[in-house]
Amino acid sequence: MNNTEFQAARNRPGVERQSFKKRLSDAKFLLILFAPAMVFYILFEYLPMFGLVIAFKDYNAFKGVWASEWVGFKYFSYFFQNPDFLVLLKNTLLLGFYSILFGFPAPILLALLMNELRSIFFKRFVQTVSYLPHFISNVIMVSMIIMFLSPTSGMINQIVQWFGGDPIYFLSKPEYFRTIYVTSGIWQGVGWGTIIYLAALSSIDPHLYEAAEIDGAGRWKKMWHITLPGIVPVMFILLILNVGSLMSTSFEKVYLLYNPLVYSTADIFSTYTYRVGLLQGNFSYSTAIGMFNGITSFLLLYAANFAAKKIKQVSLW
Results as ranks from 00 to 15, higher is better:
residue 22 K to W: 14
residue 60 N to F: 05
residue 52 L to V: 04
residue 24 L to E: 06
residue 15 V to L: 08
residue 60 N to A: 11
residue 84 D to W: 07
residue 96 G to T: 08
residue 95 L to G: 02
residue 87 V to D: 06
residue 21 K to G: 10
residue 35 A to V: 08
residue 98 Y to M: 10
residue 25 S to E: 08
residue 29 F to I: 07
residue 69 E to P: 00
residue 16 E to A: 14
residue 75 Y to D: 02
residue 66 W to E: 13
residue 84 D to N: 11
residue 75 Y to P: 03
residue 24 L to H: 04
residue 76 F to S: 02
residue 32 I to H: 00
residue 49 M to E: 05
residue 36 P to G: 08
residue 12 R to P: 00
residue 61 A to P: 11
residue 87 V to W: 03
residue 31 L to T: 00
residue 42 I to Q: 02
residue 51 G to S: 10
residue 45 E to D: 06
residue 57 K to I: 12
residue 17 R to G: 08
residue 36 P to N: 03
residue 44 F to C: 00
residue 76 F to G: 04
residue 79 F to Y: 15
residue 14 G to V: 11
residue 88 L to K: 05
residue 44 F to K: 00
residue 94 L to W: 11
residue 41 Y to L: 14
residue 67 A to W: 04
residue 51 G to E: 02
residue 93 L to I: 09
residue 97 F to W: 11
residue 96 G to V: 13
residue 75 Y to H: 10
residue 83 P to K: 12
residue 10 R to V: 02
residue 61 A to K: 15
residue 89 L to Q: 03
residue 13 P to G: 06
residue 75 Y to A: 07
residue 18 Q to T: 14
residue 40 F to Y: 13
residue 29 F to T: 06
residue 66 W to A: 15
residue 44 F to H: 03
residue 65 V to Y: 09
residue 51 G to W: 12
residue 32 I to G: 01
residue 30 L to F: 10
residue 57 K to L: 12
residue 83 P to A: 14
residue 83 P to C: 12
residue 76 F to M: 05
residue 47 L to N: 00
residue 43 L to D: 00
residue 35 A to L: 15
residue 78 Y to F: 03
residue 53 V to L: 09
residue 90 K to G: 06
residue 96 G to L: 09
residue 95 L to N: 01
residue 59 Y to S: 09
residue 79 F to G: 01
residue 60 N to M: 09
residue 92 T to L: 09
residue 72 G to Y: 11
residue 97 F to E: 05
residue 50 F to D: 09
residue 63 K to I: 13
residue 23 R to F: 09
residue 39 V to H: 02
residue 19 S to R: 13
residue 52 L to M: 14
residue 44 F to I: 01
residue 22 K to N: 13
residue 31 L to C: 01
residue 95 L to C: 03
residue 10 R to E: 08
residue 60 N to K: 12
residue 39 V to P: 01
residue 38 M to G: 04
residue 98 Y to F: 12
residue 15 V to H: 15
residue 81 Q to N: 15
residue 37 A to R: 04
residue 28 K to Y: 03
residue 31 L to Y: 15
residue 34 F to W: 10
residue 67 A to C: 11
residue 80 F to G: 01
residue 25 S to H: 14
residue 28 K to Q: 10
residue 95 L to V: 07
residue 11 N to T: 07
residue 88 L to I: 09
residue 53 V to G: 01
residue 79 F to T: 11
residue 59 Y to Q: 12
residue 80 F to P: 02
residue 84 D to I: 09
residue 47 L to H: 01
residue 70 W to T: 02
residue 14 G to N: 08
residue 55 A to G: 02
residue 9 A to T: 01
residue 16 E to C: 08
residue 97 F to T: 15
residue 79 F to Q: 07
residue 96 G to H: 13
residue 88 L to R: 05
residue 87 V to Y: 07
residue 43 L to Y: 01
residue 95 L to D: 02
residue 73 F to C: 03
residue 16 E to D: 08
residue 35 A to H: 07
residue 42 I to K: 05
residue 53 V to S: 05
residue 81 Q to L: 07
residue 49 M to Q: 10
residue 75 Y to I: 10
residue 92 T to P: 05
residue 32 I to L: 15
residue 28 K to W: 13
residue 83 P to F: 11
residue 51 G to F: 06
residue 23 R to Y: 07
residue 55 A to V: 07
residue 71 V to T: 13
residue 58 D to I: 10
residue 9 A to E: 10
residue 74 K to R: 12
residue 84 D to L: 10
residue 26 D to Y: 08
residue 18 Q to Y: 12
residue 32 I to A: 07
residue 85 F to K: 03
residue 48 P to T: 00
residue 91 N to Y: 07
residue 80 F to A: 02
residue 11 N to I: 00
residue 77 S to M: 11
